[in-house]
Design a protein around this nucleic acid. Structure first.
Length: 929
RNA sequence: GGGAGUGUAGCUCAGCCGGGAGAGCGUUCGCCUCACACGCGAAAGGUCACGGGUUCGAGCCCCGUCACGCCCACCA
């Protein structure tokens, strides 16, 4: 059945319908099959708390383009999907929900809380998945995984046990970042530094005299931004070579409030230039001081509770919030005369990226992963090119992290997540790491254990994602076939969190790389270049964009005009342009289908070679080049460049030129050779030719008989199908819709029923036709010239003008003779005459000067000789400049001796062309007087 | 403080191997030409941030300067 297409492309309804069909047909599904070559991408698992934002759209569009491309190329293409449990995000979400009901998580208890969280996951965790589908993502949904599903849990425990056995995982008291709001430790990477206005308080500690009394005259002054931490001071430090203080090293100062005597130590960590050159040392609440404390064997005193109130070590400040204590301490120090200058001070304060609470460095017993050994293969892999980062400059960021690697704090004081498989013997306190609750304590033979209450950092499980999703630790067929995966697509903002951790985890657990290429994309910013954020309210919801313009338009916008790793700004105009392109393609297709008659078979298989006209061979040739180049670009992950070439091919060459070229040939054979006007032209042309005694090559009417029409239709459909395939990875919905409608209209069942499983086009050398390309290029140049002249001369578009092509060269005349009708179709030509000389042409005709021909357009009633002369003068000047440049180059001996021969030949050719054109321009000018 | 970037048309951005500066939007002019006004045709518009250097030849390579954001470190 021949289908009618709507006049304007409307993605509504169509996209969901097509997506459902793809899913039902199982096109997304991949099975392990050793006879096929695999191509695997694992999705960066979106958080179950997430809703689709532009970052996801960016990420997933690129992955979908790659996976569809590879699938069409015949790979066993798997896009492995899934979601991440997102421990902190989710837990915070549940706590908020509970708060609305007036429940605290502690009241609920761990088990009930987890039930609640799973309930939440069940209800909302799928939201993002359905949104990804809206985008057209061709993930193998049957394989959807979750970082806390049974398999991932096993993988996590396995890795923990193994790494603990190898000594990579250890428990230790370290200074960590503590979020008093979320009540958990967080890793360095989860800390955001915010610039805040604060103060620099100068404080004086009295020195302790030789006899042990507190000096009333001698003080040591230092500056601090956090006075409350003084309660935990266990030393003050000076630079060992600071002459102002060397005599004090080894003496003691007196710490007010807690009334502690603490030593003055020497440490190179102190910057003599800053403040007074004296630093208070609080090993319990500052990472740098912690290090100093280790070096000098200082006691570590924790002065805070987990909620950032002062604890029993804070003397009379016990129970006060850290900021209230700060205020009170400053006040009391003033009263005691121990406070000096107070400066305004802008400093960076570490905050928790999730809740923006100021983090408090605290010493806690936590679980860590020792990184020094683990990171080595990850460094080597990138250094030696076993893993390629695109763009390459991301390597610098990568190495910046790996070279300064610190141990990874993996325990979190949360409930939602993978519980740490550490069990403490109730009897003797022995720690046992095991796959489950141990039966007997290896130390005291006790049988009662308590599991560590903490859970693991979310990234601990995401780090295993590329192999845990394929079945690891089982040796599954999937794992064997699809692992290592191929490409990872992600934003550069999670290099540290995720990319590096996947890499070292894979080398450690699998002994191999997790993927060979990491393709980074940037961020999508708003039109002002700002990050999209909830607080600014400048976020663009991709679903709104899809609803208004269609997923294809959004996808094309995302991929177009962007180089890997670069940020892009969101402008509606760019989406509109993509939407317009979709409409253009839609209408071109509609036009072609309108011209295919009911029951007319236009097979896309057999080329009617003998019937092909020059323009047919031209567009076929151009298509081959586009296929070749776009494919090469895609293989190099240059998606933006590839799609630009396809876009240009479709819009410029196919729609604006080729379709226009063949329009005259498409009249049904029954309508006898075309329009009335052309019959008249033919008659006039023949008459003129006979008058000049130039043999008319062939009658146009003859040329455009049925075989030419079939050739045009064949070319139109096969080029369209080729172009649709090239475009399909980028715009899957519209290409599928057109493809299927077209296949229906062609009455053929030979092509696959869906474009997404059709083979990727391969450029055929036999179809590359340089002669046709040169010929059409000449026609195009002439057509543009004529249009240009008509515009400049203000000729009404409705006015048909005669066109005389004069060339002394026979082959050129042949080209124009063959291309005569193109001028009718594209340049508002009436009669077209091709002749050897100027016989019969008025001197005052306007002209288009080409290298090998001059085209005359007689405009009897409109002639303005001075305008024509001015035009030619301008052209003359332009050519003189080009000639000067070209001659200069060719006169340069060093150019001739050093430049590659083909460049020289090219330049000579150009020069010749300029000279010819120039000569013709001069001749025209002299003819005009 | 360290690192990697960006600077090209009025705006947003491409520019692969060094070889006569591109696109989209916007602007101007002309067109509802029987696929498309979400369109067609034409045009205007650029010291490729600046200064040096390498080269027969530089938007592209090297050095320096300026401007702008980004990442890392986090000096109390």
């Amino acid at each position: 059945m021949k289908k009618e297409l709507a006049k304007t492309y409307d993605p509504h309804g169509l996209e969901d319908r097509i997506y459902r069909t793809w899913e039902e047909k199982g096109y997304f599904h991949a099975e392990a099959d050793e006879s096929k070559k695999p191509f695997t991408i694992v999705i960066p698992p979106p958080n179950i708390t997430g809703v689709l934002h532009m970052g996801h759209a960016f990420d997933n569009t690129m992955q979908d383009v790659l996976i569809r491309f590879k699938r069409m190329q015949g790979y066993n293409a798997l896009w492995q999907p899934g979601t991440d449990h997102a421990s902190i995000s989710t837990e915070v979400r549940i706590i908020e929900e509970l708060a609305k009901e007036g429940i605290r998580k502690e009241d609920l208890g761990r088990e009930k809380f987890l039930e609640r969280a799973w309930e939440w996951k069940k209800q909302y965790g799928g939201t993002i998945i359905s949104q990804l589908k809206k985008l057209g993502s061709s993930c193998d949904w049957a394989r959807e995984r979750f970082t806390m599903d049974e398999g991932c849990n096993r993988a996590v425990t396995e890795v923990f046990v193994r790494m603990h056995k190898k000594g990579y995982i250890y428990q230790g008291s370290r200074i960590i970042n503590w979020c008093p709001h979320c009540n958990t430790s967080i890793s360095d990477a989860e800390v955001d530094y915010e610039e805040q206005n604060g103060h620099l308080w100068h404080i004086r500690y009295p020195l302790v005299e030789e006899d042990g009394s507190i000096s009333k005259t001698e003080f040591l002054e230092f500056a601090t931004t956090r006075p409350e931490t003084m309660l935990g001071d266990t030393a003050v430090a000076v630079h060992p070579e600071d002459e102002r203080y060397t005599h004090l090293i080894g003496r003691e100062v007196f710490l007010p409030f807690v009334e502690r005597r603490i030593p003055v130590v020497a440490d190179t960590y102190v910057d003599r230039e800053f403040g007074t050159g004296v630093v208070k040392i609080t090993p319990g609440h500052d990472p740098n001081d912690f290090e100093v404390g280790k070096r000098h064997d200082l006691p570590e005193i924790n002065i805070m509770n987990d909620d950032a109130t002062i604890n029993e070590n804070g003397a009379k400040f016990e129970g006060m919030d850290r900021y209230a204590a700060r205020k009170q301490i400053v006040k009391e120090l003033t009263e005691m005369g121990l406070l000096g200058e107070v400066e305004d001070h802008v400093h960076n304060v570490g905050t928790h990226e999730r809740c923006h609470t100021v983090v408090e460095p605290l010493i806690k017993k936590q679980w860590f992963v020792r990184m020094d050994e683990l990171i080595k293969p990850a460094i080597k892999a990138v250094k030696e090119g076993e893993i390629r980062l695109i763009p390459k400059r991301m390597e610098a960021t990568y190495f910046n992290w790996t070279d300064n690697i610190r141990d990874w704090c993996i325990s979190r004081q949360l409930w939602w997540g993978h519980r740490i498989p550490a069990y403490y013997c109730d009897a003797c306190g022995e720690t046992v790491i095991d796959y489950g609750m141990p039966k007997e304590c290896p130390h005291c033979r006790g049988t009662a254990f308590t599991q560590d209450p903490d859970t693991l950092d979310t990234w601990f499980s995401s780090a295993l994602w590329p192999f845990e999703t394929l079945g690891w630790p089982e040796e599954t067929k999937d794992l064997k076939h699809f692992f290592p995966t191929d490409v990872l697509v992600t934003g550069y903002d999670i290099i540290f969190f995720w990319v590096i951790r996947m890499i070292f985890s894979s080398y450690e657990q699998m002994g191999t790389r997790p993927f060979h290429t990491v393709l980074f994309h940037g961020l999508i910013r708003d039109s002002e270049g700002r990050k999209m954020s909830k607080s600014l309210g400048n976020g663009i919801d991709p679903l709104d964009v899809i609803a208004e313009y269609g997923a294809d338009a959004l996808r094309l916008m995302i991929v177009t005009g962007n180089a890997p790793g670069n940020d892009m700004r969101y402008h509606v105009e760019r989406v509109e342009n993509s939407r317009n392109f979709a409409n253009k393609l839609w209408n071109a297709s509609r036009f072609i289908m309108m011209n295919i008659e009911e029951a007319e078979e236009v097979h896309a298989k057999d080329a009617p070679a003998a019937m092909l006209q020059t323009e047919d061979r031209w567009i076929l040739s151009r298509l081959q080049r586009t296929i070749r180049e776009a494919t090469e670009n895609m293989e190099r992950y240059e998606l933006g460049i590839a799609v630009q070439k396809v876009y240009d091919f479709i819009w410029d060459e196919f729609c604006d030129w080729y379709i226009e070229f063949v329009k005259p040939r498409l009249r049904p054979s029954g309508a006898v050779g075309g329009s009335q006007t052309r019959a008249e032209e033919d008659a006039a042309g023949a008459a003129h030719a006979s008058r000049l005694q130039i043999p008319q090559a062939e009658s146009d009417a003859q040329a455009y008989q049925a075989p030419s029409r079939i050739a045009a239709l064949w070319t139109l459909t096969s080029v369209l199908i080729g172009a649709l395939k090239l475009l399909h990875p980028y715009m899957p919905f519209i290409t599928e819709e057109i493809y299927q409608t077209l296949i229906d209209g062609l009455y053929t069942k030979e092509t696959p029923e869906s474009i997404m499983i059709s083979p990727w086009p391969v450029a055929k050398d036999v179809l590359v036709d340089e002669a046709a390309e040169r010929e059409i290029a000449l026609i195009q140049e002439a057509v543009r010239g004529i249009r240009n002249v008509r515009n400049e001369m203000n000729v009404a578009p409705s006015k048909k003008t005669g066109i005389y092509v004069v060339s002394a060269k026979e082959d050129i005349r042949e080209i124009f003779t063959r291309g005569r009708t193109h001028f009718t179709a594209l340049a508002h030509a009436g009669e077209v005459f091709v002749q050897e000389d100027k016989t019969g042409i008025a001197d005052d005709a306007v002209s288009v000067v080409l290298a090998d021909a001059v085209i005359y357009i007689p405009l009897a009633e409109l002639v303005d000789i001075s305008a024509e002369k001015a035009r030619l003068e301008k052209e003359k000047e332009r050519l003189e400049k080009e000639l000067a440049r070209s001659k200069g180059m060719l006169a340069n001996e060093r150019f001739l001796s050093k430049a590659p021969p083909e460049k020289i030949a090219e330049e000579k050719e150009k020069q010749q062309k300029y000279e010819q054109t120039y000569a013709q321009v001069l001749e025209r000018l002299s003819a005009l007087g």
